[in-house]
Design a protein around this nucleic acid. Sequence first.
DNA 1: CCTGAAATCTGGTGGTC
DNA 2: GACCACCAGATTTCAGG
Lengths: 156, 156
Amino acid sequence: MDLDRFDRQLLNLVQQDCGQTADRLAEHVALSPSAIQRRLRRLRESGVIERESAIVDPRAVGRPTLFIVSLQVERERPDLMAQLRKWLAAQEHVQQAFYVTGEADFVLVVTAPDAETYDALMGRLVSENPNVARFTTNVAMSVVKRGLTIPVPLEE
Amino acid sequence: MDLDRFDRQLLNLVQQDCGQTADRLAEHVALSPSAIQRRLRRLRESGVIERESAIVDPRAVGRPTLFIVSLQVERERPDLMAQLRKWLAAQEHVQQAFYVTGEADFVLVVTAPDAETYDALMGRLVSENPNVARFTTNVAMSVVKRGLTIPVPLEE
DNA sequence: CCTGAAATCTGGTGGTC
DNA sequence: GACCACCAGATTTCAGG
């Protein structure tokens, strides 16, 4: 699917706020509201817009602590690697998981209400995934920025 | 602001999909649609729901590469620390930035269309922020999971 | 005071040019 | 891509618990 200038503008706007009406979006995109709606629908159906999600304040729901985890694994067994990926994806406390180059093999972003919950999770991680060699934890003392926004250039 | 069982259910649902109608949400929450709408509005106005955002597929917009960066700084100068935070928050390519304990001082998640763009950004990081001592980069080869969802327990 | 129900009104959907 | 008619959902108001 290729995106023209209008689609790109829409993507930038909708990443900031996907609750806006088409009329409101039309103030920025020089397109009629119905054209905007049709484009948004196409973007959703084609999977360019993966999901529309509410971002909640962690402090408000009593889940304040974020942990950044670097994970080293034994890479010999492809089946265990697949299992680990599945395991990570299934854990609700694991917000994000990346398979990376470098010293670490995976980098995780984990939320937990407290250190005990986090410890329990990591205990299960190592006991249920035999190819996990070791991990190091960084506790987030403050969140400087938080989002999944991807800047979309208007011209390719 | 304190949240009852219904609010907590709503937050979990709306983190998965904030485009749902109140009727649809009512199928899961045992509340009338109008009660749901009022609660959602309150959650937004009180800041429990910070933002509602579309999540776009990085591949679809030609910005496929994610970098995980560990940053070490000289911590002597509080003013420079504040400046660095501001700088990070202002960079559109910096999706996330955490101030952490441990070996690293900051962990960043950065998007870029290619390595050159990334290099240029990091060049500006060090030249415009004199207290940046060093950084190490991990390139994300694959994204196992990606989200900002916080599991909200129904009972406090 | 908060929840559920009815009426109004705004925004989204599909056809057509 | 814009215009128009139709319908679904959101907002407001009111009654009941």
